[in-house]
């Protein structure tokens, strides 16, 4: 259970696939005009990621290593098509809003990266958890970006009016250029936070080293004193 929470935190925050690993840029930029679409895209990719991680992990001894990438792609594209068909039948408006980006989950580098780096080397259960963690991390990043773009660009959040009508809508944020720039600033903020954390960790380490060094020095001095005495 503790391991599960740790993996979850890893996927959503410390090792977020979009904000830290910088993977899966196409859907991140394209489907974040509205929070609803970002949510749909995130959950669709999560579903595919969980299924593909599970099956690739189950088949990891069966798949010949020479053709593993081809095998992964076939398995992933199968699940993507299944998700596409299910969305078409039960979430029709979302299916239309996401358009071509549902089949393009196939080439989302996050999914192939997790298959190659994690699921092919680990047992099914941790692989599924990894899928959940990375999928939620992806969804979280998408919703975060979409929130900024939808609030500033359309004055709404998840379709609800949040900014007063008098506030001018900055259409720039829903255009492609706005996508790049919003993501740029968000990743800069993440880097700032991480740099700060790294700096603090480094200072802590230095402080403890210094304390250790002083303690040793004191000890030696005391020893010397004892000797002289």
């Amino acid at each position: 259970m503790k391991g599960f929470l740790k993996q979850l935190k890893e996927g959503i925050l410390d090792n977020n696939p979009v904000l830290v690993q910088l993977l899966g840029m196409c859907p991140t930029l394209a489907t974040t005009t509205l929070v609803e679409n970002a949510f749909g895209m995130g959950l669709a990719a999560t579903a595919v990621l969980i299924c593909s991680n599970l099956f690739i992990s189950l088949l990891r001894k069966f798949i010949p290593s020479q053709v593993r990438i081809a095998a992964y792609i076939v398995i992933i594209s199968g699940f993507v098509t299944a998700v596409e068909l299910l969305m078409r039948a039960y979430f029709y408006s979302l299916y239309q809003a996401l358009g071509l980006f549902i089949p393009l989950i196939v080439v989302n580098c996050i999914i192939l990266a997790r298959a190659e780096a994690y699921a092919s080397k680990n047992k099914p259960l941790p692989s599924v958890i990894d899928g959940v963690a990375m999928g939620l991390g992806f969804t979280f990043a998408l919703v975060l970006i979409a929130s900024v773009r939808e609030i500033l660009g359309s004055g709404t959040w998840l379709g609800f009016q949040v900014l007063p009508d008098a506030y001018p809508k900055m259409t720039f944020f829903v255009l492609p250029a706005g996508a790049f720039i919003t993501l740029g600033f968000i990743i800069a903020a993440v880097q700032k936070i991480r740099n700060g954390a790294a700096e603090r960790a480094r200072l802590r380490e230095l402080a403890s080293l210094r304390a250790e060094f002083l303690a040793q020095k004191n000890e030696k001095a005391e020893e010397k004193e004892e000797m002289t005495v």
Partner: peptide, 23 residues
């Protein structure tokens, strides 16, 4: 650039400006 913008963020912002030109 400022420390936090080094690398990827600045790349994205440049891409945004170029996208504006292409628009």
């Amino acid at each position: 650039p400022p420390e936090a913008f080094k690398g990827f963020p600045l790349t994205l912002i440049a891409a945004g400006l170029l996208a504006m030109a292409f628009s």
